[in-house]
Design a binder for these strands. Sequence first.
RNA 1: GGGCUUGUGGCUCAGUUUGGCUAGAGCGUUCGGCUGAUAACCGAAAGAUCGAGAGUUCGAAUCUCUCCAGGCCCA
Length: 1006
Amino acid sequence: MTAKFKANSKLWLTQKYSPLELENKVRAFWDENQTLKKVAQIRQKNNKKQLGYVEGPPTLNGIPHIGHARGRVIKDFHYRLKVMQNYYVSFWAGWDTQGLPVELEVEKTLGAKNKKELIARVGEELFVEECKKSIMKYHKHWVDADTMLGMFIDQDKAYFTHQDRYIEREWQYLKRAWEQNLLGEGHYVVAYCPHCQTSLSNAEVGLGYQEVEDPSMLFKFKVDQTENEYFIVWTTMPFTIITDMMLGVKPEEDYAKVKVKDEVWILAKERVEPIMEELEIENFQVTEVMKGKTLVGKKYDYPLKDLVPKQGELDKHPLVHTVVAEEFVDVTTATGIVHLAPANGEDDFLASQKRELPMFAPFGDGAIFTEDAGVFAGNFVRKTDSMVVEELEKRNLLLSIKKIKHEYPTCWRSKHKLVWLARREYFLWTNKLNKKVVDAALDVEYFFDSPKNRFLAFLKEGKPWCVSRDRIWGSPLPVWVCDECNHKVLVASRKELIEKAIDLPDKDFELHKPWIDRIKLKCEKCGGKMTREHFVLDVWHDSGSSPYARFSDEEFEKFVPTDFLTEAVDQTRGWANSLLLEHIIMTGKAEAPYKQFLFQGFVLDAKGRKMSKSLGNVLETSQMLKERSADISRYYLLGKCSPIDSMNFDPNELKKRPYQVLSTFYYLHNFFLQNAEYDNFDPTTHTLQWAKTENVLESPDCWVLSKVQRLVKVFTQKAEVCEFNSALSQLEDFVVNILSREYVPMIRKDLWSDEPETLNRRLAVYATLYYVLRKLVLLFNPATPFLSEALHQMIYKELDNSLAETVNLEDWPEPDQALEDDALEEEFAILQKTLPLVYSARQDSQLKRRWPLAKVVVVASTNVHNAIKKLEPLFLELANIKCVEYADSVPDVDSELWATATEDEITVLVDKVRDDSLEGEGLMRDLARRVQALRKELGFSPTDIVDAVHLAELEPRNVELLKPYIAEMEGLVRTKKIHIHDNADEFKADWHQDKLDKKKLYIAVV
RNA sequence: GGGCUUGUGGCUCAGUUUGGCUAGAGCGUUCGGCUGAUAACCGAAAGAUCGAGAGUUCGAAUCUCUCCAGGCCCA
């Protein structure tokens, strides 16, 4: 007899689960059959509904790491689930290709001291070419990683944010904003490097914190209309006194009036002592304490009006040079009163904007003061620090001047100290839309409360959006300004540009700098020449316009609002926000462009540290997937914890539980197929219906069939609400516990036989396994698509060719109520609670499970008794006991003769006494087990029949005990004859020494 | 510095919304057992002052406050 493993010949299904090999074969299969495309095409033609999806475009400036993989796996999980539920989803890739990170990469490649020098050297054309090369290099890495991961996202339909057709549609958002007066000029404070003469992004600012030395100046401003009252203030940037506009206090904190000599000083109460100590003032007296908010509106004498005439003009504004209350003021350091220079600090700036103060930003290129700064004009801002100190001293307003070392942002490139400067920028006045924004956001499903609250809290701030950037590689801001009359137009299409151009150097121009800057338009007002504003757009505007920009008009109608989007939690302020704002600008409706948004937690390293280049703990996806299974990685990423929690990723954990679950699932298929093929099981004729009609379904089958309905229900429900971890743990429990640990042992004995008269029973088991395993393959597919596809192709399609050509086109399982049986599940739960008690009692008395015993007494309530009675044959077989008795209370028994175990309300008593017959049978099972082990070791297949089995050096008493069971044993170990020898020397054979209860014996198999 | 979030045996996670029997599970470890699908599994043992401290309460992992540490976002 030969092995009954037909599918082996296909080279796909191997005896051993080797996920890497298997996944390679599945990848090749998908590739060869264009499965991804086919699935999409079929669903496009034939679907329950079309669902919109737009890809949150990864920036192509780095290699995808395991954190990205988490998001991609969740996206793919959702896609496959929806496809199997008969939806078409526009699951098309997209890439963010512009902006600072790309420019930095190119600067590095080309070697640059600073941007100005570089552009002067290579020119913008070459710079832009290099940017394109750079992104395409990374694009390849991303597509490779996606392929390795098994992402069924359509790469051919990908959008790239730098493509002209994308930019042109992105401009439509700006056009809508322009028409609604939601786009315009304003000021914003940005970090600026005076050496590189460029502004820096927040990300760049974060790169360059260093310890530097600055002046530490304590000074006073006189309260207006008083003789001797002063606000006490501290700063490390004396030059900002030049642009000073307000003083800030914290509204709910205590401030004190302190008498010092003949003056009254005002500062935070808790800072009085430390400041007096610092100034070495011993005689002082707190005369009054008041809340910060009571100081609001008090005017102070701005001391440098004579030097900065412009400040004198500003002083006429009712709020300029007065006290305001702001929550950001810190009363635990310095004096608890801060001076606010809106042109030189973001908090200051926002405080001024909120109150609609006029802007005073007297800076030119290189952070040099302009004429507006009076006597300070012509100086680099920080150079005036000492001048300001001097002037305050002259006016008796200086209390102390020292040096301080502190952490301060410097330019990561030139190491120069950064300054914050208000610059002219373009804004989307999204603050005007705030109510719509918040309302729209409230309608979205976020699945979990914490990210929702966080997102809403952020949105409620309702800040205007500064969309202009002073860079090269980006979508240009399509605003042209007349050189003559300053008239502005926004031109949002290529066609219109060509029509309006007076200077069009090249008809095939690209919508990028520098080409677009060469286009001059004719002013419709005065006929003058119009020049484009030099800005490019914030990259968040690029990606935020994807719902309109990546689709056609028709697709936009169909797919937006999209159904389900998911990104990491850092996108709260990023893409989730820009999508929302732009969509509201575009449609005018209080509607988000997504119905559901899942914010995922971050992936950290095994020790919970952030992954960073400097720590060297970044795990690249493709690199990892060369050695690790994609299925197992996917399973791990989805299953380890809730998607909103941050995850400590430890590659070593992949081979633990996730591997165990998937391998068990795989081996269950081995087990099923091995047996089913042997009996020529045909799922199309041997259906569950057939088994019912033939009356060959037994209680374990009905139980597992009922259980799987519940699994389908719960799994689907959990998956729909993004509790992937709970869904998978249900699946895991089913595979490992319900099927492998419980069901298989129950039906194993039915499969041992190969008699024709029990064939139908075996076929019923196969029908059950086929049904259950196939459901599991489908449930597994969104998480582990390689394994599911492999099993579908190798087993299910092999057995039933009418099935879909890929597992992805199979229908998602629906629970079948007809197969649910709550009462039976309850009975089995009782059985499974009682059995371990028997095992436990046996263990205590060293009674091996393969030794049959005479009797067990179950002491429990009636419903436990009834359940066991109903399942009695099964109970006895699994307990390996000949008979069971039932009792209501624990009888008084001799513990020498009875082994007991108790849990909750159930006690079992096991009869320890074994007569010769029981002992003989137990011995036979012991020996059989050892023979089986040897057979396996010698390479026999389970179904091979061996000529003879020889046993030697058994004790004489054991030989006697064994005799009645020789025939049974011959059947069990599949041999024609068992020979028993006193001594191994008697017979020449390949003897193997073994041990039975610490005594030597010899076995040979021929 | 601010907002949000996490902290539970060696490891990974439940449990916290709504306070309540002895804080659960899986992995790992040790001992024993089972096993012709399985690196699965079964029985038992060791192992947690539930981040620390204080408070509320008859009772706190759970509620409140403070602090410490990690993470995200923002300054």
